[in-house]
Design a protein around this nucleic acid. Structure first.
Length: 689
DNA sequence: AACTTGTCAATTTTT
DNA sequence: TTGACAAGTT
């Protein structure tokens, strides 16, 4: 196969430049994935062993996508040898291979997912409150967890943390609270013999910076490094790359500074803007030919991008001509905005535009509701992108808790979760007594529960509940041994606790119950499949749970079918990397896009985003469209019960008239109404005459 | 321990 | 207006 036949000149250059650091500035729709896959194929052709080639991306979805595309080029076997994954999955892999190098005692460590972290922080916060620091206010757990995560990724240790003198007047002082909880958090995680997501990257960096022997060992294993979506890397990830990069410095990063939208999560645009500073002598290449959108859409996109100052200069172009000019639509209020979008979609569908080629994009999740209602009313099928991740769903976590209890009797977090689902009359107080007793006897909770009678100061009723639960576990373990299957043991337990009935009780509609139960079934299938794959050896549950925590999409894809033929609703963030023929960006108003946090003059705290990032978000939305683009807004909007007059987004006012056609739904409707009046008049006039 | 009522706040999200 | 979460009731 001729590797280069389907590449343009710039792409070819990017594929062929394999020595030394390279930055490929790949504009939206310029074929960056193609560059990466072809580059890998080229390296393989040159005889580089697959396992010396590392390609990192941000999401599992992107990694899987890349693997699929490479498989078709070089075959499944060769592709299987490549190191393809996310920063986190590579980190986890390295830790499993050499736990001691990275400060772990065994390869059997667990990876805490967001839910676990939230639980830990919540617990610590309660303790912190009890110590009378006046922290009995309600805190947003996420805000604290996020701060800790940001610190970890900047390598800020608690000892270095200075008390910030400039705290704002109103609201709780999150920096102070997070700082107070931070050291205890680190201790708890270490105490559990676990790592959180951030550790998967940071621990590798810290260890390799300290241990030069390990560092050269790892550097020798990987001779070619590639990183996708480089504009979204943070400090820790930059150092991760630097730590792994050998003396040959064969690094190729691909990204688009115009699409950097994760600054709020700690991503540093500076990594891509100052690439040749971090990697001196770097070659910088630009991919500017766009294969996705029609010229009028690109014209608009280029104008938006050019408003930003901190960027690499570039402009997209296409050789395809024709296409419709984007339309900026105003409606009198939010309701009518949704209705107009709904009507327009219906119109498109009757014009034989495929439903899965239409998307409605918005700044924040709350905006989806109005559209969802409208689409339901009009009987249009849709799917909402993003949403709650599979493994964060309550019922899935509940089932997972049972799995963990069965395979790891000393997993305290799981034990606590399993105990309280379904509610069986065992609360925090009873559990605390049990935990104290267990600690005293140096037993796990699972063992201690068999001696529940020994608990002092616990009512008989609770003792009975505990014994019941203990019996359930014993029974389940016996079942697992007899059937040689954990999956089947879990199924048994779920029957005994009537989880399905429980879900029904919590949910209400039978449709929703079914949806949630499907999640449970999908998970059980996943567990069973994992077990079967391990036949012979004993299943390595730590690895399974690790991959679950890292968000393997296996179950999900199993669950998702029939997503075709639906229109897509998504936040601008989750739309990145995707494309549709027709795109609606709704709520193009100040305080929505750009978001209030950055549009209002008094919002200038360190955590707040910046206006340029909001503009890039707008840019991302625009560049998702292939054929047609609608930018809608409402003149008034009901907000917290009050109707508020809205200002058009400043991003719209930056656009020259000719690149965007204005369309006012109100005047059009007025005209229609006026026309009808005239008709009525002539009708009446005829009678009179 | 489970259910009910009241208060406060109000992006974006992956791993 | 919704929703999450904590305090208050049963």
């Amino acid at each position: 196969m001729d590797l280069f036949a389907r590449l343009n000149l710039a792409q070819r250059d990017a594929v062929l430049t394999i020595d030394g650091p390279v930055l490929v500035l790949a504009g939206a729709g310029s074929g960056k994935t193609r560059v990466i896959t072809h580059r890998i194929a080229y390296l393989l052709e040159l005889g580089v062993p697959p396992d010396a080639i590392v390609a990192l991306s941000f999401t599992n979805r992107a990694a899987e996508e890349m693997r699929k595309r490479i498989e078709t080029m070089v075959g499944t076997n060769t592709a299987a040898g490549l190191v393809l994954g996310t920063f986190h999955s590579l980190g986890a892999q390295m830790m499993r291979q050499e736990p001691h190098t990275f400060g772990l005692t065994s390869r059997r460590f667990s990876i805490l997912d967001q839910g676990d972290v939230y639980g830990l922080v919540r617990g610590l916060l309660q303790e912190y409150g009890h110590h009378g620091h006046g922290a009995d206010r309600r805190f947003d757990i996420g805000a604290i967890a996020q701060r800790i995560s940001l610190w970890k990724n900047e390598f800020v240790v608690p000892e270095v943390l200075q008390r910030t003198s400039a705290k704002r007047e109103e609201g709780p002082d999150y920096d102070a609270v997070a700082a107070a909880v931070y050291p205890a958090y680190l201790e708890r995680v270490a105490g559990l013999g676990a790592v959180d997501f951030d550790d998967l990257v940071c621990k590798i960096v810290l260890a390799l910076q300290r241990d030069h022997i390990a560092r050269s060992r790892w550097q020798a294993r990987f001779s070619y490094l590639m990183v996708d979506e480089y504009q979204d890397t943070n400090r820790a990830q930059l150092e991760f790359i630097q730590a792994l990069l050998g003396p040959d410095r064969n690094l190729c990063v691909v990204g688009d500074d115009d699409q950097a939208i994760y600054g709020w999560r700690g991503a540093k645009v500076a990594n891509i803007l100052g690439f040749d500073m971090y990697f001196p002598g770097a070659k910088i290449l630009k991919l500017e030919e766009n294969y996705r959108s029609r010229a009028p859409i690109l014209t608009l996109a280029n104008i938006v991008a050019r408003q930003n100052s901190g960027r690499h200069d570039k402009a997209l172009f296409t050789s395809k001509d024709g296409g419709q000019v984007p339309v900026a639509v105003v409606t009198p209020d939010g309701d009518q905005e949704a209705r107009w979008v709904g009507r327009k979609i219906r119109e498109l569908l009757t014009d034989r535009v495929r439903a899965d080629e239409i998307a409605v994009l918005y700044r924040s999740v709350v905006q989806s509701r109005a559209i969802e209602e409208q689409l339901r009313e009009q009987g249009i099928a849709y799917r909402v992108l993003g949403g709650q991740p599979f493994f964060d769903r309550k019922e899935v976590k509940d089932v997972l808790a049972y799995l963990r209890v069965l395979v790891f009797p000393n997993d305290e977090l799981a034990f606590r979760r399993a105990v309280e689902t379904p509610p069986r009359g065992i609360g925090p107080k009873t559990l605390d007594s049990l935990a104290t007793h267990a600690a005293m006897m140096s037993m796990t909770l699972s063992e201690a529960i068999d001696h529940a009678e020994a608990l002092v100061g616990v009512p008989a009723r609770q003792i009975a509940s505990l014994r019941n639960f203990g019996e359930l576990l014993t029974e389940a373990r016996a079942h697992a041994r007899a059937q040689r299957s954990i999956a089947s043991a879990i199924r048994h337990v779920l029957g005994r606790i009537a989880l399905r009935t429980q879900i029904e009780k919590e949910t209400g509609s039978s449709e929703a119950t079914q949806a949630r139960w499907n999640g449970v079934e999908a998970l059980l299938d996943g567990v069973a499949r994992f077990e079967q794959r391990q036949l012979g050896g004993k299943p390595r549950w730590h690895e399974y749970l690790g991959s679950v925590a890292l968000g393997s999409r296996e179950q999900e894809s199993h669950e998702q079918h029939g997503e075709l033929g639906k229109i897509t609703l998504a936040t601008l963030h989750s739309a990145k990397g995707l494309e549709w023929d027709v795109v609606f960006v709704i709520g193009c108003e100040d305080d929505v896009l750009p978001h209030r946090r950055v549009s209002s003059p008094r919002a200038t705290d360190a955590m707040g985003g910046d206006l340029e990032e909001e503009r890039r978000l707008f840019y991302v939305g625009i560049t998702r469209a292939r054929e047609q683009l609608f930018l809608t807004r409402a003149a008034n909007r009901v907000e917290r019960g009050r109707e508020i007059a809205r200002t058009p987004s400043r991003f719209l006012s930056e656009l020259p008239k000719e690149v965007c056609e204005a369309y006012d739904v109100a005047t059009r409707e007025e005209m229609t109404a006026a026309a009808m009046l005239t008709m009525a008049d002539t009708f009446l006039a005829r009678f009179k005459g």
